[in-house]
Simulated scan of single mutants.
Amino acid sequence: MHETVTISIGECGNNIGSQFWRDCCTQSDLSVSGHSLHPQVSPPSHLFEEQVSSRFVPRAILLDSDPGTLANIRNSDLGFLFPPSAYISGTYGAGNSFGNGCNDPDLLELIQEPLNDQIRIQAEKCDQTPNFNLFHSLGGGTGSGTTAFTLSHLKEEYKTSIFNCSVLPEPDASVVSPYNCILGLNYLIESSSAVLCFDNGYLMAKMKVIGEINQYISSQLVDMFKSEKQWIPKYDEDAAYDQRHFYHSEAMWKGEIVTSCPVSDTDKVIQEIEFENTKLYNSGAIQSIKQQLDRFDLMFKRKAFVYGHSKCMDEFEYVEASERAHELLEIYENGEDCTLTTD
């Protein structure tokens, strides 16, 4: 049984993470401080570490370039669920730039060492190398860039499966969000074992309220990870993971079947994974990625906003990200067999 370490990154990732751990506590008969309300019931050990006095602590790290979101969590009723060392932040945001979130030396000076230390400490508490869950958005500088930085470290140091819950930005999120999204996508293709995509614009049109979207996402994540079912592809150093692992989900929400991304009638379902209340499909998320890539290519062709956005980066990284995203689209559009081997 693989333990799982969850890393919430950026404002969006930490809001989803907070709802996820709140829901995990409810499902496991724990108080929001991690104390068992029914000692005869044990929460899933792959998600929680048992400490003294029937207290359980999430195997979690909370990371952000800006301290504001983490301060809100610390000051909430959920704040005592996590040890102080789990909170890692910079002193200012990433300026809505992938390059800042991934490569800014001032930010990395603040977060790199404590992040690497916490990942190592969490891994050493596990019986074997854990799997990793990363919750984040792709629209902002931290959610895209700092996630990319974290993925690179995990891939280099830990030969294990990595799952990303990735929120794709709505069209009017920011003028540079397509840059952040496709640049971050490049790292997901390179390093992640499985990616579950949520289209924020599509969901906002249905739900109108961010908090409700977080609840919708969390309900599926809890459904997927509450058991020890190992559905994430096994790590294989020689396997070509790239471009074969992007999912959309379908779940009942307030009496209606809701998908996480827009899906067309012509989408080919390459793989289906079923849980108690959630289904994953390896196909539909590509529609939302294509929309982001179209915006990216249109902007980059005119070099719009590249000068202000490309700090700590070279322009060839934009070219590489676009090329790999187009390869991803081509594989899905051709309906190639993307079935993954799991445990």
Rank of each mutant, 00 (worst) to 15 (best):
residue 118 Q to F: 01
residue 122 Q to I: 03
residue 198 F to D: 11
residue 292 Q to Y: 00
residue 102 C to Y: 02
residue 280 L to P: 06
residue 316 F to G: 00
residue 290 K to A: 04
residue 113 E to F: 12
residue 260 S to R: 00
residue 136 H to S: 05
residue 338 C to Q: 05
residue 99 G to Y: 03
residue 124 E to F: 10
residue 99 G to L: 11
residue 231 W to Y: 13
residue 223 D to M: 05
residue 108 L to D: 00
residue 170 E to G: 10
residue 233 P to Y: 01
residue 299 M to E: 01
residue 74 R to N: 00
residue 182 I to P: 03
residue 187 Y to N: 06
residue 268 K to P: 00
residue 320 E to Q: 14
residue 40 Q to L: 13
residue 153 H to A: 04
residue 208 K to H: 10
residue 167 V to F: 01
residue 306 V to Q: 05
residue 343 D to I: 07
residue 74 R to D: 00
residue 154 L to H: 01
residue 126 C to A: 12
residue 170 E to M: 07
residue 111 I to N: 11
residue 2 H to W: 02
residue 293 L to K: 07
residue 70 L to T: 07
residue 179 Y to F: 15
residue 33 S to G: 09
residue 48 F to Q: 04
residue 3 E to F: 07
residue 170 E to T: 08
residue 56 F to R: 04
residue 223 D to L: 06
residue 135 F to Y: 13
residue 102 C to K: 14
residue 272 E to K: 15
residue 343 D to Q: 12
residue 289 I to Y: 00
residue 300 F to Y: 15
residue 19 Q to E: 14
residue 260 S to L: 04
residue 28 S to T: 09
residue 268 K to L: 07
residue 333 E to A: 07
residue 60 A to W: 06
residue 179 Y to L: 08
residue 335 G to N: 06
residue 27 Q to K: 14
residue 84 P to C: 03
residue 25 C to V: 06
residue 88 I to Q: 09
residue 24 C to V: 06
residue 74 R to Q: 10
residue 118 Q to A: 05
residue 118 Q to H: 10
residue 145 G to P: 08
residue 309 H to E: 08
residue 122 Q to G: 02
residue 256 E to T: 13
residue 287 Q to N: 15
residue 223 D to V: 11
residue 331 I to P: 02
residue 241 Y to R: 13
residue 273 I to V: 14
residue 27 Q to R: 11
residue 225 F to R: 14
residue 271 Q to I: 09
residue 120 R to Q: 13
residue 1 M to D: 13
residue 156 E to Y: 08
residue 298 L to V: 04
residue 188 L to T: 15
residue 270 I to P: 01
residue 296 F to W: 12
residue 183 L to F: 05
residue 196 L to E: 09
residue 110 L to V: 09
residue 234 K to S: 14
residue 1 M to A: 15
residue 18 S to E: 11
residue 206 K to L: 14
residue 65 S to A: 15
residue 227 S to V: 07
residue 21 W to D: 00
residue 235 Y to I: 04
residue 11 E to Q: 15
residue 51 Q to C: 08
residue 293 L to Y: 06
residue 305 F to I: 08
residue 93 G to P: 14
residue 160 T to I: 00
residue 140 G to I: 03
